[in-house]
């Protein structure tokens, strides 16, 4: 199989990889770049565990070809805060007990981030709607919704110094 040279901008850094053109961004992130925070499950854009930010918008990396991402800024969960630090959303998820098995959480946090970036003053219904593409089987969602609302308040009062790249 012929491979093509891809130059991907992920979390502000450039990664050069050789990959077959049919390979998805999810596959390349996890297999070639070791960015395992982006999770794999249904591979059909139904569960949301593979959510990343593409030019700031939440997308499912499982149905996005890596080749489509050249020259476009990608943010994964690893790039949400500097190493050793937590984004207010991450802090809020911990504080609200919104994390059980945790497998859906990176995608959930990124979907929430994209939503809060354009809707800084959300209500509960808005958050539920924004996260409907992310299935969680452990929590029943309530603590996740509460965490996002609380993070929104925190972000309004003191935006993170180390904003996502």
């Amino acid at each position: 199989m012929t491979r093509i040279a891809l130059s991907l901008t992920i979390n502000g850094q450039t990664h050069d990889v050789l990959a077959e053109p049919h390979r998805t961004l999810l596959d390349v992130l996890r297999t070639d770049l070791g960015l395992i925070g982006t999770k794999e499950n249904c591979l059909e854009a139904e569960c949301g565990v593979c959510t990343v930010l593409l030019e700031g918008a939440a997308v499912n990396a499982c149905i996005l070809l890596a080749a489509q991402c050249q020259g476009r800024a990608i943010v994964t969960i690893e790039g949400l805060a500097a190493p050793g630090q937590l984004h207010p959303l991450q802090r809020a998820f911990i504080d609200h007990g919104a994390v059980q098995c945790g497998y859906c959480i990176p995608g959930m946090i990124l979907a929430a981030k994209a939503y809060l970036d354009t809707n800084p003053e959300p209500d509960g219904d808005g958050v539920r709607e924004a996260l409907a593409g992310n299935l969680c089987r452990c929590t029943g969602y309530q603590r996740i919704i509460d965490a996002v609302l609380s993070a929104a308040r925190a972000l309004r009062t003191s935006p993170p110094s180390q904003a996502a790249r």
Binding site: V59, L131, G133
Partner: peptide, 9 residues
């Protein structure tokens, strides 16, 4: 249609 992730694309 779908979730935000789907509707974004």
């Amino acid at each position: 249609v779908g979730g935000h992730q789907v509707r974004n694309v």
